[in-house]
Design a protein around this nucleic acid. Structure first.
Length: 537
DNA sequence: AAGTTCGCCAACCGCCTATAT
DNA sequence: AATATAGGCGGTTGGCGAACT
């Protein structure tokens, strides 16, 4: 009888069509299961007589009543005091994910989805932290959403992080480095002290990257990327996204949040490449005359805008795919530094050095290899922010290091002794057990290869600069180190006069397919590297 | 119509950390 | 200091309906 009634209810619920309703249906289905289970008397788990599986409404009621009386916590006591045949963990989970009164019901709204993407870009798979930033949402919800989304994007061959999120995070990281943190968490400050991490802006005039568009305005996210590109630059509205802190190295407890305010605005950002080049020539990016950046991704809807190749190199989207949809069987490809000389005629068609989405997927789903390090500010963490911060820090150091010109002894052995172009060489990140970064093997891998680490063991209490090896070295050293690396690339494998060369580095979104402005590009490289390079070419 | 795949979700599991003993 | 326990987190699994083939 119970089952018949339930079926009737279930059938009625099947009429709903939208996502929110579907979720309700789904929940209804589970409620149905619970009802049925309750009718059947439920089932007890094997061990200890504790019940497993779906919760019944009766159990929920018991748990709610218990929490009302005793408050949250001491979950193991629930069984004793209420007679509920559930383990403490199960009770806590049930309460946290379903019974808490402050939970939001229904699907994520676009704003929440956008926040999830951004937060993931910054945090990686830190679901609990992300949940702390999304009131009423649970880590489990976010995790499920993300995993589903990843699968969807993976199939579509689309980048996981919208370019603007990359930019936002990048810029946010920069701002973060400059800002005084309002969190009041002294612990966080410990990781932010150090040298001036300012990275001056560079204007990418020809990129039509309007900072306005890169702002955090939610409306932006409803604007198709294609239309964004049409609208051009015009605003000088300041970007005020401040990541107030590098997220805690310890897990958040309770309601600890990463951001103090209810709303966090996200600024636009500049490509990593601009950071790199900036110090050398403030507008050095300009000569590149990059025609556009392809936005292969329409933020909130997970849709590929029409006319945009799913595999376009998204700016900073190291996880962007090649020009073809990524097959499921496709495994992690070579680092983006690879330029395939074996593919003549691939001019204008980057040889897909970027990792497939699958690799990103594995990034997202693969557990950290060492918990101790997972929270360190290093590329080992899976957040885009971390990767970018890492790069920024590295670049910051790299930009200011003239003393190092020929002193390769400073460099990590694997950098000095092995070509970063060598596909057999794993990046630092890979070597440390995290084969992927949110940037995949684009810019991130470029720099990670060149980033000295203070050691394989990075104590989580190390300061950022120590971890990144920035402040501990003379700034002048790093600049020439970068110089060295670029030159090394130029002299060894990469033809930077080819427009896709930098694409392979993941620095630019989408260069002119026809290789226009090669000379301009060369000039820019020359400007970047100095006459030595220019003359040499 | 049947089978397969996908999307969604709840729940469990194992591990880690903090705290208590 | 060592051990036990509780709480928390992230990864994974399994079930179900919907959509697709």
């Amino acid at each position: 009888m119970c089952q018949m009634n339930s079926k009737g209810i279930f059938k009625e619920m099947m009429g709903a069509t939208n996502d929110s309703e579907k979720r309700k249906i789904s929940k209804g289905r589970r409620d149905l299961a619970s009802i049925q289970e309750a009718c059947a008397g439920g089932s007890l788990g094997v061990g200890g007589g504790l019940k497993k599986g779906p919760w019944t409404s009766a159990e929920d009621a018991i748990l709610v009543e218990y929490v009302k009386k005793h408050g949250e916590g001491n979950w193991n006591a629930v069984q004793k005091h209420s007679g509920l045949s559930r383990c403490g963990k199960s009770c806590r989970l049930r309460w946290a994910n379903h019974l808490r009164p402050d939970l939001k019901k229904g699907g994520f709204n676009p704003e929440e989805e956008r926040r999830i993407i951004e937060l993931h870009a910054m945090m990686g798979n830190k679901w609990a932290r992300m949940a702390a930033e999304l009131p009423g949402r649970t880590d489990n919800e976010i995790k499920n959403y993300w995993n589903t989304r990843i699968k969807r994007l993976q199939r579509a061959g689309a980048p996981i992080y919208p370019p603007e999120v990359c930019l936002q995070v990048l810029n946010g990281s920069r701002d973060n480095q400059k800002s005084t943190l309002p969190t009041g968490d002294a612990h966080h400050h410990d990781h932010l002290q150090g040298d001036d991490l300012e990275i001056p802006d560079v204007k990418f005039k020809d990129l039509d990257l309007d900072r306005e568009y890169l702002s955090y305005s939610p409306k932006l996210l409803d604007i198709p990327a294609s239309s964004l590109l049409k609208q051009g630059i015009g605003s000088s509205r300041p970007y005020n996204f401040k990541i107030p802190t590098i997220y805690p190295f310890k897990r958040l407890r309770g309601s600890e949040t990463m951001f103090p305010g209810p709303d966090v605005s996200v600024s636009g950002a500049l490509p990593i490449f601009s950071h790199y080049m900036d110090n050398t020539n403030e507008n050095v990016a300009e000569p590149f005359n990059l025609p556009s950046i392809t936005f292969p991704y329409h933020n909130t809807n997970d849709q590929l805008p029409s006319g945009v190749l799913p595999g376009s190199h998204a700016l900073l989207n190291g996880n962007s795919s090649s020009s073809e949809p990524i097959s499921e069987a496709m495994k992690l490809e070579l680092p983006s530094l690879q330029y395939s000389e074996t593919q003549p005629g691939s001019w204008g068609t980057p040889t897909s050095p970027l990792p497939s989405l699958e690799s990103v997927d594995s990034l997202i789903q693969s557990p950290p290899t060492e918990q101790t390090h997972s929270d360190c500010l290093s590329p080992r963490s899976s957040g885009l922010l971390e990767a970018i911060l890492y790069e920024s820090q590295t670049l910051k150091g790299s930009k200011n290091s003239p003393q190092q010109t020929s002193d390769t002894s400073f460099m990590p052995a694997d950098v000095v002794e092995s070509s970063p172009m060598n596909p057999c060489n794993k990046t630092k990140w890979e070597a440390h057990g995290e084969p992927n970064s949110p940037l995949g093997h684009s810019a991130a891998s470029v720099f990670s290869e060149y980033t000295p680490l203070s050691g394989s063991s990075m104590d989580e209490h190390q300061s950022v600069e120590t971890v990144l090896g920035c402040s501990s070295m003379p700034e002048t050293v790093n600049q020439d180190r970068t110089h060295y690396f670029i030159k090394k690339e130029l002299s060894t494998q990469r033809d930077f006069t080819r427009p896709d060369a930098l694409l392979d580095l993941g620095w630019f979104g989408h260069y002119n397919e026809h290789g226009k402005d090669q000379s301009t590009l060369t000039d820019a490289i020359g400007a970047l590297l100095g006459e030595e390079y220019s003359n040499g070419y």
